[in-house]
Design a protein around this nucleic acid. Structure first.
Lengths: 301, 301
DNA sequence: AAAATAGTGTCTGTCAGACAGTATATC
DNA sequence: GATATACTGTCTGACAGACACTATTTT
């Protein structure tokens, strides 16, 4: 700390202070790394490749939750800031150094990890999936991209003048096409409005094949990503390569929001964030698209 | 965890697993508790009381940072979720049970606390200040509401086609009128756009009178509060009592955003969130205002 | 009547949604 | 020419910003 000069008395206090006298948790990070990747093979030379929103999962080689899939993550090391832990883990899995990384939550519920008291600080990462090199799998280690699909199912809605409750069931479907793996897990969302305040709580209904409380982390992170995309366009660019077509960009928005957008309107909305380049996409069985780059100036208000 | 049956092998693994073999941090929470309170005495019987955005600070009775002011907070106890820690601390300081509480950041930089490796999960809390009962001060303990003022000072702005940097100096002024205390602290914000990604970093310039890195926490929490208020109106209601006038509500918006709003436009914007009651404010030296309550149904999309 | 706040009506320009239409590559 | 995507123009209605105006209470 700058501007802080210790007195002799304070130095003495610190010398006597024993931080280990209190019970401490382990602190870990789990990262929901999203990207946009091609789904399967190109069926028709005319058609654009079908892309989908992907999430990186790792097959656990050890107990607990051996053979289940989990978010990449790890323990925070001494002399390491948690953001550094997240950065390091991200790099170890994907070889990506400069990705978008954002705190998305804390999960510290008692019993969430059978090994003991482990608090996880969770992060949202967005990367350009085509660019990244996944760490090679070994016998003990395997990482795969899973396509993400979120289904919302309103269950119950009660509201009076003073209070309201809203129960929503979410089904998260994670598919790894190449390996023919499909995980379908469900989480319940309980929203309450009582005492003039809103509270939200999540509960896992079933989580077969997914480790720990990672379903919850995935769901909450995905919902917060969506909300952000609705509010500001800039975050989506973190999924894009240096040069991209406007259709690709629109596709990224559509995959996150899970809804179709109208092209003319979309282009008007993002016009200020992009600059047209001289280059075009070649080799497609149809009219080629112009390539755009980010307009750096537009990313500042 | 539901849906999780352990094998004998796994049970054996967990029995052998020693979580204490790794070095662990202490985990704490610090809470930025905001409210809106009357500033000083009523000078003119005609005028409305002047209100301001207040932040709760506590005078540290012990080392480190003895006699400095700090955010209320404390260590996370075993068998306690961090949200519970925050709730507990909030209740201990303010006697408020059902306040709005939201994760606002993690601070785990090495050296942020001279006592050792302490990671702080920080929270934003909004409460109706008029309703809350501050815990009584003792010789060893003192809590005060400080008015918050944020000043922005753009310092440097460079941008090219590929990259941009933006340096902003923030001055946070915290005043406790009743005790004639005024703390003025400065934080530098470094925004960078490089490798097609934006990063933000904060650095304390000076922090006289404020403990630890709490300036940073205060600034970042306040900025995120502002951003949220710009995006959705609902969060501001957490600062209001059950019944309130529209002028009071507008005032709350203005204090957070630090800008004047136009009344007619404001009322149109929040019209759906409120319901008129039969009651009116009495005893003012001017036309009395109607009292409104929250429209519970509007708080759900 | 003066002071001070409470509350409303309306003009304007911007922008999002909807939709129709045109353009241009490859095969 | 068929196919498929790329890209543009314009109508509409909603809404945010600006501003002028009216209303009501106490002293």
């Amino acid at each position: 700390m700058s501007n802080y000069n210790m007195s002799a008395e304070e130095k003495k206090f610190l010398k006597q202070y024993d931080i280990t006298q209190f019970e401490r948790p382990s602190v870990a990070t789990d990262i929901a790394i999203f990207s946009i990747l091609r789904e399967g093979e190109i069926e028709n030379f005319r058609k654009l490749p079908k892309k989908s929103l992907k999430l990186l999962l790792i097959k656990r080689a050890n107990y607990p939750y051996k053979d289940c899939w989990a978010l990449p993550g790890g323990f925070c090391r001494p002399n390491e800031d948690i953001y550094e832990t997240a950065k390091r883990e991200l790099f170890e899995e994907t070889n990506v150094k400069n990705a978008y990384l954002q705190l998305s939550g804390i999960f510290g519920e008692i019993g969430r990890d059978p090994r003991g008291w482990i608090i996880s600080n969770t992060f949202l990462a967005l990367i350009d999936g085509e660019q990244c090199q996944l760490r090679a799998g070994t016998d003990a280690w395997e990482a795969k991209w899973f396509s993400v699909d979120l289904e919302k199912n309103e269950k119950k809605n009660e509201s009076s003048e003073e209070s309201a409750t809203m129960e929503t069931e979410y089904t998260v479907t994670l598919c790894c096409e190449s390996d023919n793996i499909s995980l379908s897990v469900r989480v319940m969302e309980y929203k309450e409005f009582r005492n003039y305040h809103e509270t939200v709580r999540y509960e896992i209904l079933d989580s077969v094949g997914l480790a720990f409380d990672h379903v919850k982390i995935i769901l909450q992170t995905l919902l917060s990503l969506r909300k952000q995309v609705e509010n500001e366009a800039t975050i989506v660019f973190d999924l894009m390569p240096e040069l991209f077509t406007l259709t690709q960009l629109q596709n990224a928005f559509e995959l996150i929001l899970q809804e179709k957008l109208l092209t003319a309107n979309f282009r008007r909305k993002i016009a200020d964030y992009v600059i047209e380049t001289e280059q075009i996409i070649e080799g497609a069985g149809h009219r080629p698209a112009k390539l755009f780059k980010r307009n750096v100036k537009a990313f500042y208000k």
